[in-house]
Design a protein around this nucleic acid. Structure first.
Lengths: 296, 296
DNA sequence: CGCTTTGTTTTAGAAAAACTATATGAAACA
DNA sequence: TGTTTCATATAGTTTTTCTAAAACAAAGCG
């Protein structure tokens, strides 16, 4: 870029349009400005280049020999820029980037995505599995699903559903669990990263988490679920994450009681950016899936 | 150009520079503006695109997946534009376009150009043979040589030499021309387009053009000269155009008397544009050639 | 020849964009 | 913990660009 800084980009665009269209008026029309504006831009650019790009014939303008070559090359350059912008538009229109926690992705979202893809084949999905708080304005995330209190600043948070937790275990283990008190005898599978205490479920039943029997501990909720399915013990599972395993009978919930934590599921989008169609569609689909899950 | 109009060109340049340089400060440095200006431009462009091009990491910026592709394509586009501008600069620096009357080109200028090319091999000459009045500001003519009274508006006119005319003919014919009166007996070759009357030469000698013997007539001074060389008659030749033929003896001037017309040779350049080196050099060379011709 | 059409340039003033300087904030360095 | 590095926010200023209307200029036409 040794020579470009010497001239105004808008002037180059005016020159290109005028050269391609063959007249200032046609160029002004294309650029959506007045004829005078185009004339001024071209004159200024010619001065900056120190060379005449057009001959004025009284019947209109005609590129000089140099001018024609120049215009041709400018056209090429602007076409490239246009293609670059077109690419982003296509990308933003057709690629939906979703940020979700890895466990929620694998245990709930991914198994349902095939239905979404079937309903919206024109949208390519890109899943970004991460627990970091994201800002849709300063990343290419279109939409995130997060569990929390919905008080994140600088983003738009829409309530999805409450977070409910309850004990789950393998069917074989469940036989020994007839009343809530029996849970104090079963090994407890713990998610070391979870900040949800058993008390949230035990307290309303008059029990205390300090009486629980320690079992295995994992750093990932997905591993806990797998351990529970394998019959390693009882875990305090999130409703959403356990749902599918409960459906197909690989897990069971020995007790009816469910506890609501102080957290909920929230759908995070940009506060500033206008909602694109792909986001609107995904949100509608997501609410439908949640509806369906809650009905069962 | 369906997508480009949606975004600001200057913003695209900021995005490209930031993406290539890897940081706003480096981009600001390259663009010669403040960091804040670059930041604002990029933010505005991202809003116009409706997509994030950079991720903000606290340690600086990093292009998103889409952003990197976008920046790469922008780089390509701006390189093309830069090359286009570079081309005009090279062209204006190294190509000298001269407008001269066709006859002056063929009978005087072209035979001398080899010497110029030898002295200035870096300058490519382009001769535009035309008698039209030109305007160096609204065409790609750098310099013109014209015969007239030097009163053209809107251009810079520099005096070169007076126009002198005198009769010339083939050596064989000259034997019969001992005194000016003898010219009334010889056939006169006429340039139908010339506006120089024989009286300008005849009157000071007490003769009248109405007594001349009509010979052949041509619409081009070059053809008249060729006819004179072929011995068809006597013509009233311009000093400059006849000079080379006189030097090598193919024409002779039977009489010493020369007449000055009211016209002169003028060198026309742009009134507004600053004089490039190539023009200055050519002017110096031209004055040298004229000097040399007048000495002989 | 004057009149009309077509097309560019010139103005002056208005509107929009871009820029600077400074303050603020946030992460890494050490 | 303070320092450095980088990006962003804000407010006011400067610069650029635009519009609208008039002025030109060259053709084409009755």
């Amino acid at each position: 870029m040794k020579h470009l800084p010497r001239v105004h980009l808008n002037g180059l665009r005016a020159v290109e349009a005028a050269g391609r269209c063959g007249s200032l008026s046609a160029a002004a029309d294309e650029l959506g400005v007045s004829v005078g504006a185009v004339s001024q831009q071209i004159i200024k650019t010619e001065a900056q280049l120190g060379a005449a790009i057009f001959e004025r014939t009284g019947r209109g303008i005609r590129p000089t020999g140099l001018g024609q070559q120049f215009v041709d090359r400018l056209s090429l350059g602007f076409q490239t820029l246009d293609a670059a912008v077109a690419m982003t538009r296509h990308h933003t229109d057709s690629v939906l980037t979703i940020s979700v926690a890895p466990v929620f992705a694998s245990k709930w979202l991914v198994p349902r995505l095939a239905r979404y893809t079937r309903a919206h084949p024109e949208t390519k999905l890109r899943l970004e599995a991460s627990t970091d708080l994201i800002n849709p304005d300063s990343s290419d995330i279109d939409l995130a699903i997060r569990v929390g209190e919905g008080d994140w600043p600088g983003v738009k948070s829409e309530y999805l559903l409450p977070q409910e937790v309850f004990p789950v275990c393998a069917p074989a283990l469940a036989d020994a669990l007839e009343t809530p008190e029996d849970i104090l005898t079963a090994p407890i599978i713990r998610d070391a990263n979870s900040n949800i205490a058993w008390d949230v479920w035990l307290k309303p039943l008059g029990l205390d988490q300090r009486d629980l029997v320690e079992g295995d501990s994992f750093t990932d909720a997905a591993l806990c679920l797998d351990a529970a399915i394998a019959g390693q013990g009882v875990m305090l599972a999130w409703h959403t994450l356990a749902h599918d395993a409960l459906q197909c009978g690989r897990l069971v919930a020995p007790f009816q009681e469910r506890a609501r934590t102080r957290y909920s599921y929230w759908l995070i989008t940009s506060e500033n950016r206008q909602e694109p169609a792909k986001v609107r569609e995904f949100k509608a689909w997501l609410r439908g899936e949640i509806e369906e899950m809650l009905e069962i």
